[in-house]
Design a binder for these strands. Structure first.
Lengths: 301, 301
DNA sequence: CTCCATAATTCCGGAAATGAGATTTTTTCC
DNA sequence: GGAAAAAATCTCATTTCCGGAATTATGGAG
């Protein structure tokens, strides 16, 4: 029994879907299928009942889920416990607005409980600026979104800066275009019936992805707003289409009255300077890694 | 982090030796070394201090040991918990005298605590007879010693019977010739200054191994006794050399006053009919497997 | 002090497990 | 009934893992 199998199991159990779980843990679906099958064979019990496309836990799966959670928690605790010098001092973490809203609350709570002696300094910003700050030692690490492969050529500086850094994927976000409530479904930016695209700062990767997508088939201007709440308010007026990951949208008070269009999946990376990993950073890294498959994914169906 | 690495870690931690741990978990020493190194790298901490040939736990190793134990226990509990139908009824287990004495007490206690509804029927006997009983459905499973490769040809019937069974190694025993207290050290059977070799029944694998060894350089008769206590008493008279695994000798009341000679390592196998694994058997199998690296090895140094 | 036996590590080749894609099958939704 | 989507299956390249041989290091005996 391998702890990575258990991580995969947890993801499938939560998402009730091989495909989604695969995205969440950064693997390919066929692989997830086989790992689950191996686990089932190893335990000699069927963990999921395959009702067509849905994967629902069997009764045995439910009981195993409880143990799986405890095993992961215990493994994390073990990792943290053997740290020779208890992390202390300050850790300067940079984060995107969206990650701060959706993913960090739980993780930071956990981290604080484990290492109360570390004082966390959170800085919000766009991916570009955060990366620069890490390179320039103004931050110890940051959570950023890297543009998808196809767009990497456009911002050579950014990419060059990343070369000097350690990077590790910790989350996967589904990036959305959010449309006003009455707006018809769209296939491409040409179908947009709004006056602008509402996004955050220019250095924001999500904004760049959206602009890149829009540019192909329309000439909409971008209107710059300060927060995701402001963006959604702007969408609510009917004048703009917003850009945000699903995890953020799911937190918002208007759950149903918006139409969305998928722009694709974007990884969130934890970046840090190579060979400069203070104990507090490693602890933070471990806490984030342990949450990989485990975060609440709110009402994806 | 892989649970098999943790099993290996536990073995090394207990034995303070890569070589012994390798035997205990049924692997080759180089492999054990690598797995420990991987674990250390993964945790980014040094678990053992290599003082020459000894492997002693570091302080971090000590704290990890506690977690390792809990992880293995939790994993076993998880396995047992998902069993769809709780084992019940009876399980007929055959065992060698030696295994019953040294290895089973702890395992059976644990098993009884977990599955009080299973009534265990223990039968003691020689490996040959036990194997026959399993084939003939007089037992559900048995713990036997298989002759080492070199001797397999001699008892074709026995080997043929095993072909029809599932086999899995669960323990490794160090087989010894036990000499009377004043007896000089020996290199081979030719150096023996006793009248006979004291062993159990003819079907006993340990006896056969000893006879095979003796035959090469002496013509000593075998005197057959009914129990290991009887054998040791016979050795104490100075007239015989006894045959028994170290784990049994270690349990005996005369710890120091005997001289021993190593005959080699012999695996203890759990055998069962193929495709005939009642729930209670699987539970028993899991309990034994989980103890692989964990049993108390008494004063090997 | 040197040689020898023992233990750990390193090195290397074959075997097994893993993961990514392509393909197939099944199900659900039009 | 057909199209879309999801899971399972298959294949292949890659990685990892394991066992055995060679190497290094240590402690003990002469």
């Amino acid at each position: 029994m391998d702890l990575s199998s258990i991580e995969i199991f947890l993801a499938v159990a939560r998402d009730r879907s091989v495909t989604k779980a695969a995205k969440a843990v950064g693997r390919v679906p066929s692989n997830v299928t086989t790992r689950i099958q191996q686990l089932e064979e190893d335990l000699n019990v069927s963990l999921f009942s395959r009702d067509g496309k849905k994967m629902t836990l069997t009764r045995e799966g439910e009981t195993f889920l409880a143990y799986a959670d405890r095993l992961m928690a215990l493994a994390l605790e073990a990792r943290q416990a053997v740290r020779p010098l208890a992390p202390s001092g300050t850790l300067r973490v940079g984060t995107m607005e969206s990650t701060a809203a959706s993913r960090l609350p739980a993780a930071l709570t956990q981290f604080n409980r484990m290492w109360p002696d570390v004082s966390l300094h959170l800085t919000m910003g766009a991916s570009r600026d955060l990366a620069r700050a890490v390179v320039g030692d103004a931050l110890d690490c940051a959570l950023i979104a890297r543009p998808p492969k196809a767009m990497r050529g456009e911002d050579a500086d950014f990419e060059a800066g990343l070369k000097a850094l350690d990077m590790e994927p910790v989350f996967v976000e589904e990036l959305l275009i959010v449309l006003p409530s009455g707006h018809p479904a769209i296939k491409s930016a040409a179908d947009l019936r709004v006056g602008s695209i509402a996004a955050l700062e220019p250095g924001c990767t999500y904004r760049r992805i959206a602009e890149n997508w829009a540019r192909k088939s329309s000439a909409l201007p971008t209107s710059e707003l300060g927060s995701y709440h402001a963006i959604l308010a702007s969408v609510a007026t009917g004048k703009a289409a917003g850009v945000m990951p699903r995890s953020v949208l799911d937190l918002m008070p208007w759950p149903t009255s918006v139409q969305t269009h998928q722009l694709g999946l974007v990884e969130t990376l934890l970046i840090s300077r190579k060979n400069d990993h203070p104990s507090a950073f490693n602890a933070f890294h471990e806490v984030l890694s342990a949450r990989k498959g485990r975060d609440i994914r709110l009402a994806t169906n």
